[in-house]
């Protein structure tokens, strides 16, 4: 394999399959990532709240979910989501796999985000909560007016990193051909048998995506710091 033929192949592949990579692949990768992180932020917050609550059952359930999600490979979670969830929720069986895959991505992201939120809250000096409580404010008010606003400054940058992680993690969803970038790779590779060329293309695209995202996040963080 010479460099010349490698580059020619890439140009030929892109000429024929650019839509598969740029439209479908990147489109679905971003869509899945955004839904996963947005859902993860929502349910992750609920997870974090439940875990801090005094109800032991909730605490145990959430801890179990978080431990299992963090302690098992994403691929395995996807298999379970696609093949076991429909046994529990029959409605899923008639829907395309992307629904089950999305649910798994959201649960996965929720587990990580709940840990991000938990550590973000714990990183706030406990003296802040004590001072608020000592003035007679309720736990609720103290949390909302004092602790959470400070925790968010720790949480948001980590949430950005989670988003970048999820962009890469979605690649495993290609096991079920949901259409994201890695699926594009599988499809085009399956048609052309030009593995390295296709890998190179999706590699460049993944890098471009995460690079742009991390630069954007860094700029946004700087702005936030300047306003603090």
């Amino acid at each position: 394999m010479t460099l010349g033929s490698f580059l020619t192949n890439i140009i030929n592949i892109m000429a024929k399959y650019w839509q598969v990579f740029l439209l479908r692949g990147i489109g679905y990768t971003l869509l899945l990532s955004i839904i996963a992180v947005a859902g993860g932020a929502f349910f992750g917050s609920i997870f974090a709240l439940l875990k801090r609550s005094r109800i032991v059952v909730f605490k145990a359930i959430i801890s179990a979910i978080v431990s299992v999600v963090r302690g098992t490979p994403m691929l395995l979670q996807l298999y379970i989501g696609v093949f076991v969830f429909p046994m529990i929720i029959p409605k899923l069986a008639s829907l395309p796999y992307i629904y089950s895959v999305t649910i798994v991505l959201i649960i996965n992201s929720s587990a990580y985000v709940s840990e991000i939120i938990r550590s973000g809250i714990e990183a706030v000096d406990p003296g802040q909560m004590e001072a608020a409580r000592s003035l007679g404010l309720t736990q609720h008010t103290a949390m909302l007016s004092i602790v959470l606003p400070q925790a968010i400054k720790n949480i948001l940058p980590a949430l950005g990193n989670e988003f970048i992680m999820v962009v890469k993690e979605t690649s495993l969803a290609s096991t079920f051909f949901v259409g994201e970038l890695m699926t594009s790779y599988l499809l085009v590779k399956g048609n052309t048998y030009l593995t390295m060329e296709c890998l190179f293309i999706v590699g460049v695209l993944y890098f471009a995506l995460t690079f742009i995202l991390s630069k954007g996040l860094a700029a946004w963080e700087r702005r936030m710091k300047a306003h603090a």
Binding site: D125, G127, Q128, E130, A131, A132, R133, S134, L135, G136, L137, S145, I146, P149, Q150
Partner: peptide, 28 residues
């Protein structure tokens, strides 16, 4: 209600970092 009758001053001040000086005083 009980705590509202007791003012507490901490070794490490524990002023609210996300509030201005005046907001610190008026918040409660």
């Amino acid at each position: 209600l009980g705590r509202q009758k007791m003012g507490m001053v901490f070794q490490n001040f524990n002023l609210f970092n996300n509030k201005t000086v005046k907001e610190n005083i008026t918040l409660a």
